[in-house]
Design a protein around this nucleic acid. Structure first.
Lengths: 152, 152
DNA sequence: CTACATCCTCTAGCGACTAGAGGATCAAGA
DNA sequence: TCTTGATCCTCTAGTCGCTAGAGGATGTAG
């Protein structure tokens, strides 16, 4: 299945067309050969690489980490200690995030359970947000950062 | 404690100075009065509002949602159904994120456990990322988006 | 009087895309 | 052959929620 158009590569890999071009622009994906009419052509290897990137992104790996992983992949005689370290870092962060989110969920549940659908004056949601002292746990110094950026 | 400088308001509310100015620029916080030498002066009400915003942001509320909540807060005779709905949305999203992150954690644990510190050729980390088929669960269509934005 | 902290405005940058303009090319049907 | 519409190209600018830095004015402590 060689010589795929960018659209076909997008379909096969699950990475959107503009995102593929973006990955090329940041040199995460090599510039593919072009047809006579200047269109990009991809092969199965590119699709695999794109799927790899997509999967890693879904797992929350940052582009820089993916870049490192791809370099490791390109030189398979290297030690996998570096790849392992990246995954471990990721795991630690994911566990931190889960802990934050669970504290957060507890607080949100407290809010919506306390809401008696009366007036805002007695609304727990507003009240809890207004009174920081009611919040016993500590959500950590850094913001929780789950505002979903790239929604469909 | 009226007539605080922006730095004092920042300290009292836990919101950084440039962030306070940013909130003013997007009209989340009203423009405060200025001194003769053009410096912003805040009072206790502003500090409360800032603390409210900060707390809501820590809980993952988007600025637009906070804007709505603040409007509700300013008119306390309204029904709190809107505030409740916003909090419920937030809760649902948090629960989705937790589920994604737990699937993700399982996969990362599988990765680092499988890594025998040999060569990349046998490295589970690379292998699992490369082979999407090994991933049984589904992380959802949208990206997990936990790349920590504003790390201090 | 001298440091130095704090304040001001302004612009630009971050990450990881997404959206749209404005145009070229391709594939299929009438 | 013509036409329609999908796909492709490049480019710039926008998203979100800030953060960083330039370049200058003002305040405060010793």
């Amino acid at each position: 299945m060689p010589n795929l158009s960018i659209g076909a590569a997008a379909k096969a890999s699950g990475v959107k067309v503009p995102t593929i071009r973006y990955y090329e622009s940041i040199e995460l994906l090599p510039s593919p050969p072009r047809t006579g009419s200047n269109r990009r052509t991809y092969d199965a290897g590119d699709v695999r690489r794109l799927a790899f990137i997509r999967h890693a992104r879904e797992l929350g790996f940052e582009v820089e980490a993916i870049r490192t992983l791809l370099k490791l992949q390109d030189e398979p005689e290297q030690s996998c200690a570096a790849a392992d370290a990246i995954a471990r870092d990721r795991l630690a962060e994911v566990e931190r995030r889960i802990a934050s989110l669970e504290a957060l969920r507890a607080e949100l549940m407290r809010m919506v359970e306390g809401c008696s659908h009366g007036h805002v004056g007695e609304c727990r949601v507003i009240e809890i947000l207004a009174d920081h002292g009611e919040c016993r746990h500590h959500l950590g110094a850094e913001p929780v950062a789950l505002a979903g950026g790239a929604g469909g």
